[in-house]
Design a protein around this nucleic acid. Structure first.
Lengths: 226, 226
DNA sequence: CGTCGATTTGACCTATCTCAATGAGAGTGG
DNA sequence: CCACTCTCATTGAGATAGGTCAAATCGACG
């Protein structure tokens, strides 16, 4: 099933559902862990686990998009990671999950028993390599949250989802509320930013959840170094 | 030199210089990597590397505090991680460092050759475990940047640095500018928040870089779930 | 066609930023 | 020991990006 190991080098921490679809590549799990592994299916907008749940299994996205978020006591929510094919999540320092995990699309998730995973050398290697990718994505996200304007955040977000210049149509797997919670904005500000981009002719909203980037360079300029 | 392995479980991603000083514990490197390892010293406010430098060695803080930051083209800066004893940094997805590393205090850094590290199973294990800790810190940081008010950010920051209720005096290893760049605020807002806390009697500024928390609970309330 | 949830738009408000001035502390040299 | 200077921090006054609240519009679905 898992032929090549370098699959772990695929770009990722990249939440767009179709982004890797072309190759339909399966993420890698070393043979010695195959038997400690389950794959489960989830529908869109289902919760995989909640913050505080006991963390006995490590998870990997086989297919689809997942978001990790944290809640403040008064209900404010921050999406802390967007995950796509191959990304790992659900490992924890202590015994509890430090944030909640919810699906953005229909998803297949592989669960790997935590103790077995800790024993498997090859899995540790894959895990560490994966985490690098997610580290960089989180650094970028911190810059976005700490230092970018609303417009810059939305533009950066679009670029993050735009597969390529020659693939300028994005199917947003997220509601405005989820986008807002990822970008540290309100739903109204996200909406106004989209409208402004539309007014300036940089994007076309083909459907509510379908964006065509018409002037890629202009979006790049707005994003201030994605 | 490295007797116990569980040292890697010590709390960390915790930037306060004196936080682990009591035990004077050295972070762990497996024996098989000892010879691929160098330890270097840096003075306060020295750059270890810049974003874009080639990433040929992984780094670990042996002693002191380090910050990782990214710059936007127009000079805006975001500090993306604060690191203390035992924390690892400088690994990269590609060939280049994704952010810059600068010392906050006098620092000792251990460099581990990247290729050797990738081959060492025990190091991968330590690395993965360390990264978990830093992951959680970064999630917390994203919540702070995306969803907390200025006051909440400053209160959370103080709690992060306060070793304990019975150790209420904090020596800030950072300038106001560095704090502002970590919290996603301006220097003025940080300063005003400190003044407000002082006015309300929750802290005393014994020196510019020395804060005594006088009403711990009140700070905790302000921080909104640290 | 009617209903319901999600999105967009408008009007207003406020937390934080910006710009500018003042103050405090550390180091230097007379 | 006392100016002098330099950097960093504080404070004030005014501007503004983005938040809040409320209303209008859209789109999917029965």
């Amino acid at each position: 099933m898992n032929t090549a190991v370098d699959r772990s080098l695929l770009k990722s921490a990249f939440p767009f559902p179709g982004c890797n679809a072309a190759g339909a590549l399966l993420p890698e799990v070393p043979a010695d862990l195959e038997r400690c592994t389950t794959v489960a299916r989830y529908r869109q907008h289902q919760t995989i686990y909640f913050e505080g749940d006991s963390a006995d299994a490590i998870c990997q996205v086989v297919e689809g998009c997942v978001m990790l978020y944290k809640l403040l006591p008064d209900g404010r929510r921050q999406v802390v990671e967007l995950l796509g094919q191959g990304d790992v999540f659900g490992f924890a320092r202590g015994e509890e999950r430090d944030c909640s995990a919810e699906t953005l699309t229909d998803v297949r998730v592989r669960f790997i028993d935590r103790r077995s995973a800790e024993r498997s050398c090859s899995f540790q290697r894959i895990l560490a390599r994966r985490m690098l990718i997610q580290f960089e994505a989180m650094h970028e996200h911190a810059v976005l949250l700490g230092r970018k304007s609303a417009m810059e955040r939305v533009a950066s977000f679009l670029l993050r989802l735009a597969p390529d210049t020659d693939q300028p149509v994005i199917s947003l797997p997220m509601t405005r509320q989820e986008i807002a919670d990822y970008l540290g904005l309100t739903i109204e500000t996200v909406s106004r930013s989209f409208s402004e981009l539309k007014r300036r002719g940089l994007i076309v909203l083909e459907k509510q959840d379908r964006v065509r980037i018409t002037r890629f360079n202009a979006i790049e300029d707005l994003a201030t170094a994605c």
